[in-house]
Write a protein that binds this DNA or RNA. Structure first.
Lengths: 342, 342
DNA sequence: TAAATTAGCTAAATCGATTTAGTAATAAAT
DNA sequence: ATTTATTACTAAATCGATTTAGCTAATTTA
């Protein structure tokens, strides 16, 4: 049972495949195809269950109706939710998306971009790992539409959609200060990532704004591919000593770190918020049912995803020369729960 | 800066594109291409940064090196993790994957399958919604490789990979019984899904096996697209009355329901495990940092994902006629934490 | 009535690869 | 010296669409 092609329909009706193509593309009027034969084509196409071959269309038109998405890890709910929004918005434009998890590894992302290029995707949405500047620059040269999300490279001209990380961390830290916390720690990861860096900057400025000196010992930067051990060590150093703990509050810069961190805090037998207050980036499900539900910085995932797709679509449909780049910075929302005291 | 094609290389070297194709496919020896010219081709290909056009290859060879994945929701960590495993294993075979979230909606899944067919994917991995039997049957007729995961249709001949849901629920329920619980409830969703049905069957048989009658009032079947309200209602009915609660334990059949459920339990001011013991399917992150960490039924996601891809690859590479179908049933692991008492 | 226009359709090129069938030149065998 | 093999390569068909250029017959205009 081979698939029906445009040729099969043409042969079946004794007309040219040109005619069939015109009709199926809804351009019958434009090319003065007779009403009766046009109707017959549609009818036969349905009868024979004709499905256009997108690969063939793609070869001829240069459009695959596919966008490539590179994120750190689709198993991470933050990216999962983002991916879902992107998939949904893309579907509205009759596009589908190839998901690639880079693990924040520039070598992986390089290989993934290459593969997506070979597959002739029409556009890319990328959350670029550090040290992937060169790949991105190359992409830009290739004139293939792309948007960066979550982070960006200040030195590269491109479209990007991010949240106001500085402001978000500033708000979160201020909230902790307002609850009377003074020795506020920050656990984050590789500060070469702009977004992480901005978060820590916002945290520092909030402290300074309230006339509190920044104590570098309270800032724990985890190695890139962190795991439970790294988090445990950081928490130990901040809260471990029995006589007077170093910190009375922690700002987690990602939910992956935060979830592990809270696990450690519980393991140490400490209570949130009594022994230590907690705020985290990203509104993970886990935070809702936590020992004491965690106050978080919520990101507008739907808007990020939707806008990213829309920018890509716009670039695909209206290739501008020279390009004008959109730099979109969205606001976050501090969702107050119980982890900072009442 | 247009992309380099095989023709460009051929022209540049004054040879035929046939020769170039042979060399680039590593079939130089096979077709007796001279060593020197073969070396030159490779050299020039690198210099000109040649990237094969997979779309063109796909059209000619009929292989797109793409597999389509249809799951309920990529934002759901269960499917996110599964998707990640599938992506990873596929990459090993130089395949990539198009993700589609069906929301358990058969109409969506139908449209997604159609789109994937048009895109000529080489194979499908599908977690089929209820009432999608007809689509699956059609796929089977089309001779395109596919595997079902998480659930299957007993009446359709196909490959599938599932876990032993009956056994998993039996073990989980037995564990609750062993902790002295007697009024054990089950909150699940649409029982037309085989996997959900098997879970509830395992639950019932465990009760009967311990000479406890099944009380249908303790089994709450949530509507298909359930949300917080549905869960709240179920929990209310089970635990709401102040005088003597109906249930002293709950088995949640999915983590999505379970996480919401625990939120409700907390909202009612009840304590786990003192007021009610809890076991849930799926080892969600949230369960690790819960008020009292939740005992769960862990599924072998890596094995499911890996095996699914391997079966698809095998079918793509060795199209068998007549087909022989693999029915794989994997074991689960009961991960005991604190939510059932000590 | 001849020229110009329009309606309705088709042939063939094209996208970028793969693959079959073949050719020309040289070397080996008879 | 002729036939046969072998070596090194190429022309052209093909996959399934889109699209340009053009053709014929009927109709309108001059």
């Amino acid at each position: 049972m081979k698939k029906t092609s445009i040729n099969d329909i043409a042969r079946h009706l004794g007309v040219s495949k040109t005619l069939v193509s015109f009709v199926l593309n809804g351009r019958a009027k434009e090319f003065r195809i007779g009403d009766d034969i046009a109707a017959r084509v549609l009818e036969v196409a349905r009868e024979m269950n004709y499905q256009p071959n997108r690969i063939a269309q793609g070869l001829r038109t240069g459009k695959t109706k596919t966008i490539g998405l590179i994120i750190a890890d689709i198993a991470n709910p933050f990216f999962g939710k983002l991916g879902r929004e992107i998939e949904q918005e893309a579907a509205l434009h009759d596009y589908h998306v190839i998901f690639c998890s880079s693990d924040e590894n520039p070598e992986k992302s390089r290989a993934q971009i290459a593969m997506l290029q070979q597959s002739q995707v029409d556009g890319y949405i990328i959350s670029p790992p550090i040290n992937s500047e060169e790949q991105i620059r190359l992409l830009a040269k290739g004139r293939i539409p792309f948007v960066l999300i979550d982070r960006y490279f200040p030195e590269i001209e491109s479209d990007y959609i991010v949240v106001d990380n500085y402001d978000a961390a500033y708000k979160a830290t201020s909230h902790l200060l307002a609850q009377g916390r003074r020795r506020i720690a920050n656990i984050t990861m590789n500060l070469n990532l702009v977004n992480m860096n901005e978060r820590t900057e916002g945290y520092k400025q909030a402290l300074l704004g309230h006339s509190i000196a920044v104590d570098e010992n309270l800032i724990k930067v985890l190695p890139f591919s962190h795991d439970n051990k790294d988090v445990t060590k950081a928490i130990q150093e901040l809260l471990g000593s029995t006589d007077g703990r170093k910190a009375d509050a922690i700002l987690f810069s990602t939910s992956k770190i935060g979830v592990m961190g809270i696990e450690c805090i519980s393991a140490l037998g400490l209570k949130i918020p009594d022994d230590v207050a907690v705020v985290s980036f990203d509104n993970a499900d886990a935070y809702k049912i936590c020992v004491s539900p965690v106050t978080v910085v919520g990101q507008p995932l739907q808007e990020i995803g939707k806008t990213a797709v829309q920018i890509i679509m716009d670039k695909i449909e209206h290739p501008r020369n020279p390009a004008r780049f959109q730099h979109i910075k969205l606001n976050t929302e501090l969702i107050v729960r119980k982890s900072c005291g009442s």
